[in-house]
Structures are given as structure tokens and as C-alpha cells.
Write a protein that binds this DNA or RNA. Structure first.
Lengths: 198, 198
DNA sequence: TTAAAATCTCGAACTCGTTCGAGATTTATT
DNA sequence: AATAAATCTCGAACGAGTTCGAGATTTTAA
């Protein structure tokens, strides 16, 4: 009977993850201690470290779950026949709204995702999914001749993603204070990008 | 004889700041404890808290000093008769080089500056100085008709600053691995922004 | 079946950021 | 000059993340 240990390990792992999701949502990252998580998961505090190297790692796996949920919402972006600018604004405003919904959670997550301590393969997979969607948008826009063929899809995606990042920075540094304000700023920047500044 | 206390307070403040600069440079933020700083400054660990509310605050004041130095270098950007694209690349590559010179320091600083815990007036002053320079560039470019008058200087600055941020994110998430690579990517994005993508 | 190896668990302890509280020093008041 | 008020300092202690080490459990090998 091999695999008892493996089975238990999986269960414990999931128990920790579930406890973290629950407590981070109820209280928040800062207000949840490792001991809280351990207690909720029914194990000793030290045992947690057999599964996650640091408290931050638990947070990152929590982010992964949250992002998965958010991704569902995103996929339903109605990519019908809208002009590319509107489409992009819709797309990024969903992300923006999600990430700034909870100021603290968003900040913490962005710090980890945008300026991570070490290259994180899992995050790259996430990014790739978003970029796939974006590239789909641009590809369609190129085919209907709304935008030029001369730019690579990846570079286009990076461009708009960067503008999105800049807006988030503006939010967290206090330049933007409401969603409509953010959307207006986003529209201005996106139009600049599309039309050029020459 | 009034002011003995004030005098001492100033000295202590400077001693802490100097100790922090020294130790953060030698070891790094994480590897420097408050106690280390206190010892170096010749005071008790608790006393530090009379001057800075948190360890992070010490780091932020350290950043301010570093950024001041970096700013000097920046001002000397030769804004002669270069095309705006080259000028912007030069400008932002100085910033990029500075901030990524020490991977860990840069990451920590960017986290604080881009996604700060609370709105930080001092950081805004810094940003303003950079934006002033950028707006100067754009203004000159508009006057020699290199770029259109229709965009506000501020929005233009935000646009390129955002692209710069996106590149830093690319650096820290492992998409960019060398300065020449970063510069090439920057040039591509900047050209996209200038020429538009239509 | 059994002994050795590998792995898992958790109480105790360590580190470091931060707060408390009480005594020391300076300033203000008369 | 003397005393009260304000401020500064730092040893002690607390809280939370993390590591140590030793015993318990499971796997492997014979």
C-alpha cells in the first residue's frame, strides 16, 4: 500500500491553501498569521513550512487562484465588432476594476507580479494567457485593416499592457481617484498609442 | 541657551540616515537590521523609532538620497538636436540602468515608488521633477514640429513613463535580460508610440 | 517481517520589527 | 533658582515569520 504519505501530503497542501484563501479573504494578508492558517488547516504552524517556503509564497498561490477567477470574467469580453480602442478599454478596465477593488490586496499582488523577487514561471503562464487574448484582438484588427500590419502582435500587447501598468501606478500614487477618471485617462493614452503623436 | 535639544535631534537624525546609507549599500535592505543601524549611529535601537516610524520609512529616505544623485546625472542628458525618440531613449535608459544596477535595491525601490502603501508627497515631488524634464523635451519637439500640438504635455509624459515601467516589469519578470536588449525593446515601443499603430 | 533510510510533524527557540513604560534630559514657567 | 511640563532615550518585552532538532510515521530493501 504505497502512496499513503503522498495522499496525506496532497490533502494537507489543499487544506493550507483553502485556509489561506478563507482567511486572506476574511481578514487580509497582513492580519492573517501563519499560526492562524495552521490552526484553520488543523496542523502545527511549523508544518506549513513543509509546503510553502515563506508566507509570501502562500500569498502568491492565493493570487493564482484569484487570477483564475478573474480570468473567467475576462474571457467573456465581448470582442464583437467594436473599434479596437473601445475593446481594449473594456478589457483593461475589467482587470483594473478587479485589481483595485481591494486596495491592499491589489497593491500586494501587483508588487509580487510586476516586480517579483525571482522569475516566476507560473506568473509567466498567467501573463501569456492575457497576451494571447490581446494578440487575438490585434490580429483581428489587423485583418479588418483597422491597424497596420507592420507591428508584431507581441509588441502591440506589451505597449498597451504598459499603459495599463502606468495607470495602476497612477492609481496607487494618488493621481487617479475613481474608476471613471481612470477610464478617461486610459482612453486618452490608448488613443495616443493608436493614432501616434506625430 | 535654547536649542540644545533641537541641535542634538538633527545630529541623531543625520547619523541614522548616514548609517542607513552606508549599511544598505554594503549589505542591502533585508540584510540590515534596525539594530545594525542603531549601533552604527551610536544609539539604542528603540531610539530609531523616534525619527522614523518604520524600517520602510528609512528605506524611503534612502531612496530619496539615491534618486537625488541619479537626478544630477539625468539633467545632463544632452537634449541638443536629437530626434525625440533618441532623446527619450537616452533619458529613460539612464534611469533604467540606474535602477537595475542593483537588482534587489531597484526592486524594493520600485515597489515602494510605483505601488506605495500610502500616497507619498515626497515621491510626487520627485516624479514632478522628471515630468518637468520630459515636458520640456516634448515642448521643444512640438515647437520644431516634430510632434503634433494636439496632445497635452502631461499625457505625453505619462505615455512614455508607462512604457518605461512596462520595460522594468519585463526586466524583473525575466523577459529582458540585458541592457542592450532592454534598449532595443524600448526603441521599438517608443517608435510605436510616436508613429502610432494605425 | 524487520531494520534502515527517508520523510513528515511540531514544540521550542531565534530573529527582527515594533511598542511599552519608566527614568533621564531639556525647556518653560514663575 | 526651583519646579512643572514636555521631550528623548533605551532596556524589556511582545508578535510574527522562520529555523532547529528530535521524535513519529511511512517507505524501501533484504
Amino acid at each position: 500500500m504505497s502512496g499513503v504519505r503522498e495522499q496525506k501530503k496532497l490533502e494537507t497542501q489543499q487544506a493550507i491553501q483553502a485556509a489561506a484563501v478563507k482567511l486572506f479573504s476574511e481578514k487580509s494578508f497582513e492580519n492573517t498569521s501563519i499560526e492562524d492558517i495552521a490552526k484553520e488547516a488543523g496542523i502545527g504552524k511549523t508544518t506549513v513550512y513543509g509546503y510553502f517556503a515563506t508566507k509570501n509564497d502562500i500569498f502568491i498561490s492565493y493570487c493564482d487562484e484569484e487570477l483564475d477567477h478573474a480570468f473567467m470574467q475576462l474571457q467573456s469580453t465581448d470582442s464583437a465588432e467594436k473599434p479596437i480602442c473601445d475593446l481594449l478599454v473594456d478589457f483593461f478596465m475589467i482587470k483594473f476594476t478587479f485589481v483595485t477593488k481591494n486596495q491592499e490586496f491589489g497593491r500586494q499582488m501587483l508588487r509580487e507580479m510586476v516586480f517579483p523577487c525571482e522569475v516566476n514561471e507560473k506568473a509567466k503562464v498567467h501573463d501569456q494567457r492575457y497576451f494571447d487574448i490581446l494578440e487575438g484582438f490585434f490580429n483581428a484588427a489587423q485583418e479588418r485593416n483597422e491597424i497596420s500590419q507592420e507591428h508584431e502582435l507581441f509588441n502591440l500587447s506589451v505597449h498597451f499592457f504598459s499603459l495599463y501598468l502606468g495607470l495602476l501606478a497612477g492609481w496607487y500614487t494618488g493621481y487617479l481617484n475613481s474608476l471613471p477618471e481612470a477610464e478617461e485617462a486610459m482612453r486618452i493614452l490608448f488613443r495616443q498609442a493608436i493614432g501616434g503623436i506625430q
